[in-house]
Design a protein around this nucleic acid. Structure first.
Length: 319
DNA sequence: GACAATGTTACAGT
DNA sequence: CACTGTAACATTGT
């Protein structure tokens, strides 16, 4: 996925739908996906959802947090009666959930639902089932809401830690500044960006994707930003002029903002927290467009491999 | 069958 | 020690 715009789109969905729910039970179907102090999620209320680069943090009211990284093929999908009727779940979800790629299931309930559970038992003897309020129909310890974690390639992870210890997770500890922080961190500034470039000896494209240097940028947006800024992906980072660095900084902001506006890129498995596809793939500048004509100069877009990743650019106007 | 796919990380080498 | 490149993780789709 999932780069900054995709993960942020998921975060916005979880912030809207998940907050207020209590996690009644965490069902771990593939143990290697989940580590840490699992028992502390049981009975805890979701307080908020933050994002750090491509990582998500679900904060619980008991001062524990669920850190999630969905890597390439993870999906976090929320289901409940609160989901709007017209919601169109993408075929990328793979039909009914859970499916064979569902590795973790969070069973959720609302605090008020839990409070009414006793009453549900009382009325069940004297009233018919259809007269019972739908939301208190359940007589087990589970609510009517669920959060699924699906992951075809099983690269992702879920770590449960005391909130104050999140920084001890190396991914978060080493994460560089980002252009659109979600949790009050300072945004990457243009001067800071220039300093990062000037200190780097290698090519610019892998640098943009280095999470330790700059948070949240991955292969799709790195390719597109370099195209927008008219900079060749193989250029040495420290060889960019002031003007070029500024252009690249603005281009990164532009493509990431466009990705956010489009609800992310669903070229592959990515869907939002309700299972809906994003639209940024309709706005790809060069990503995946090898052999097609450059929209700016008409030259044919090339594909090469840099640091093991597909790299797309126009040799006509990227210098 | 070969290869590539939104990402990170461990490890070997310079 | 710092940096760089490659393989690995596991699965699907072309």
């Amino acid at each position: 996925m999932p780069e900054l715009p995709e993960v942020e789109t998921i975060r916005l969905g979880l912030q809207k739908y998940l907050v207020g729910h209590t996690i009644e039970e965490i069902e771990v179907r593939l143990p290697k996906m989940v580590s840490g102090e699992i028992k502390f999620v049981h009975g805890a209320r979701v307080k908020g959802v933050r994002r750090f680069g491509k990582g998500l943090v679900i904060d619980l009211a008991n001062d524990y947090s669920i850190a999630v990284h969905i890597k390439m093929t993870g999906q976090l999908i929320y289901k409940s009666s609160k989901v709007p009727k017209g919601t169109k779940v993408s075929e990328k979800v793979g039909g009914e959930l859970p499916n064979k790629f569902t590795h973790v299931i969070f069973h959720l309930s609302h605090p008020e639902l839990a409070a009414q559970k006793g009453r549900a038992y009382l009325v069940s003897g004297s009233q018919s089932k259809k007269e019972m309020p739908k939301r208190v129909r359940h007589d087990n310890n589970r609510g009517d809401a669920v959060l699924y974690y699906n992951d075809i390639r099983q690269f992702g992870w879920i770590k449960i830690v005391k909130s104050e210890k999140l920084k001890e997770i190396s991914f978060f500890k080493e994460l560089g500044p980002e252009l659109f922080p979600s949790a009050g961190q300072p945004a990457l500034a243009v001067d800071q960006f220039k300093t990062i470039l000037s200190k780097a000896k290698g090519p610019i494209k892998p640098l943009l994707m280095d999470q330790k240097k700059i948070g949240g940028v991955g292969n799709i947006y790195a390719n597109d930003a370099l195209f927008v800024a008219r900079i060749h992906p193989k250029r040495k980072a420290n060889s960019l002029s002031e003007k070029e660095s500024e252009r690249l900084f603005e281009a990164l902001k532009k493509v990431l903002a466009k990705g956010l506006e489009a609800g992310g890129a669903s070229e592959w498995q990515y869907v939002n927290a309700l299972g809906e596809a994003g639209k940024y793939q309709e706005f790809f500048q060069v990503y995946g467009k090898q052999g097609m004509k450059c929209p700016r100069c008409g030259e044919v877009i090339k594909k090469i491999v840099m640091a093991g990743r597909g790299t797309f650019f126009c040799s006509g106007c990227q210098r």
